[in-house]
């Protein structure tokens, strides 16, 4: 099994255990993807984690965009903006950085 900073990840780079997550892991993952984590990235990652803690599931993209709109302003509450932060998709790449399981299905 592959690892990142000592934490086990699956074939696609998602943490096997949510509890293994650390900010350093998010940092390391983003560096691998060639992304520098900005405060805006962290807003998204934090929200994903908060939501997950409550629902044991990642928020729908629409729920995420609205939450970000509240936090960062309406001009940033849209999926285009989120995609500019996470080119591989706010749900998939965002969840990976946040240590959450990958959303599956027809998404």
């Amino acid at each position: 099994m592959a690892e990142i900073l000592g934490a086990e990840v699956d074939e696609e780079g998602y943490l096997l255990k949510v509890s293994d997550w650390t900010a350093d892991i998010a940092q390391a993952m983003s560096e691998e993807d060639g992304i520098e984590l900005s405060p805006e990235h962290w807003e998204v990652i934090n929200f994903l984690q908060e939501y997950y803690e409550e629902y044991e599931f990642a928020p729908a993209v629409r729920v995420l965009t609205k939450a970000i709109a509240k936090k960062l302003g309406n001009d940033k509450g849209n999926s285009r903006y989120l995609y500019s932060l996470f080119p591989y998709g706010p749900a998939k790449q965002g969840c990976r950085f946040a240590g959450l399981p990958k959303p599956t299905g027809c998404v």
Binding site: A60, V61, R62, P103, G105, C106, V107
Partner: peptide, 11 residues
């Protein structure tokens, strides 16, 4: 499809 609850532009 559950994607309708989650993804764009499905929702």
């Amino acid at each position: 499809p559950s994607a309708d609850f989650f993804a764009e532009p499905h929702i």
